[in-house]
Simulated scan of single mutants.
Amino acid sequence: MKTTLGIIEGFYGRLYEKEQRDELMSFISDKGYSYYIYAPKNDKSLRREWQKPFDSAKTELLVHMSVMCTKLNLDFGVGISPLQITKEKDRLLNVLIDKIDWLLENTNTKIIAILFDDISLYTNEEGKKQNEIIKEVHSYLTKKNSTVRLIFCPTYYTFDPILDKVFGQRPVHYYEDIVKDLDKSIEIFWTGNRVLSKAITKDDIEKANALWGRKVTLWDNYPVNDGKFISKHIYTRPFKNRSDLDGIVLSHAVNPMLECKLNEVALESLLSCYKGLDEDTIEKDRICRLKKLLPESYEKISDILDILNDEGIEALSDNMIDRLKKEISKDKTKASQEIIDFLNGVYKFDEACLTD
């Protein structure tokens, strides 16, 4: 494979526990993924309070994740959403550089992601301002002789008009301003033609590559379920409509579900897509994975899981929910507990979704 696969933990809502993340890292390492980027939107140290130094608990977590990734032959990355930096560049650029410097000096960070997604426009020349900031970060990394990957997520990371409705009309020259004299080694995140792209084709990516003047790094918003409507689903179907992307996409990063263990179904299938396996084989592998996750109950609740995936919890009758609870209680697995927690509202929609 020419395209590398990884995780971008970039969702809103409840954060993973350390043990959950460790297990997820181990799983993707075994499956051939190559990196893990820590960038949850609800981690204040990376977004709302990014200007503050990491406290002792966060320092311990970041060091731990870095060590785990190194042991598992995964590249460890951190994504920072530097709110207001384009508004107060002279003051905040040094704060951002200092935070990156801390990561490089204290952890084995291999990827730095600067994320301007889901942030309202602060200036009329947002593209130029973001371009300047990314260049400054790149210059700093170059001076350190660093081999760290630098990935940039623009405010308008898809052609989807929903971004214009939520965050303001994209400036006419935004894309041109972003890429002007931007070093080709700097990667750019792209989610496809939509924020939630049901299909991502070779043609879709080639258009994005032409727009940015480089192969994009795909930020895939499947199976993530942190939004108003998608939070009503548990996604246990495989990736589909993502074929012929190898070598067209530079890298493919998956934004996972809040239900950490249940991510295994989709994550396993993405590798199968890149290997060109047929849909029947991928479906058989999906069923095998679900039987491992839910060994006692899967056969009796597979129909309900399909409804949860395709239509959401509101499509379940009271009888279906009762049957699901009864059968799932027979399993004492982490995956079964995640379904129980979902039914009990633990993963409820976060009102902060798509806000800054």
Rank of each mutant, 00 (worst) to 15 (best):
L121E: 06
R237L: 15
L250N: 15
L305S: 01
L104H: 12
N42E: 10
W212Q: 09
E314D: 10
I80F: 04
D244N: 11
N263P: 04
L5H: 08
E9L: 14
W190S: 05
T70W: 15
N73A: 10
D322F: 14
Q169D: 08
D181T: 08
T147D: 13
D55L: 10
N255E: 06
S26G: 13
E279R: 09
G32M: 01
I151K: 00
C288P: 12
K58T: 06
P295G: 00
E132G: 01
T142K: 15
I339Q: 04
N106S: 13
D322A: 13
S29I: 07
V78K: 11
E9Q: 12
L290C: 05
D331R: 05
V216Q: 01
L308T: 02
D164T: 04
A208P: 03
I234Q: 08
I97L: 11
N73F: 11
S302V: 03
Y36D: 00
R170C: 11
R47Q: 04
I85R: 04
Y298S: 03
I282L: 04
S81R: 02
G10E: 06
E187H: 07
D117Y: 09
D303L: 07
L62P: 09
D278A: 05
T123E: 04
I37N: 01
E351Y: 15
Y157T: 08
L141D: 00
Y274L: 08
I205T: 08
P171D: 02
Y12M: 03
I188W: 04
P53W: 07
N131T: 01
P238A: 14
P161K: 01
D203G: 00
V249F: 03
V249K: 00
E17Q: 14
E60G: 12
N193F: 05
A113M: 15
K31W: 09
F27W: 12
R194L: 06
G79M: 05
D244G: 13
C260L: 02
K228C: 07
E49P: 00
I321H: 00
K291M: 06
E49G: 07
E88I: 15
I321Y: 01
A199G: 06
N94C: 00
L5A: 11
K144V: 00
T3W: 05
E136G: 05
L141R: 07
I313S: 03
Y174M: 08
K240L: 04
S139R: 12
S26E: 15
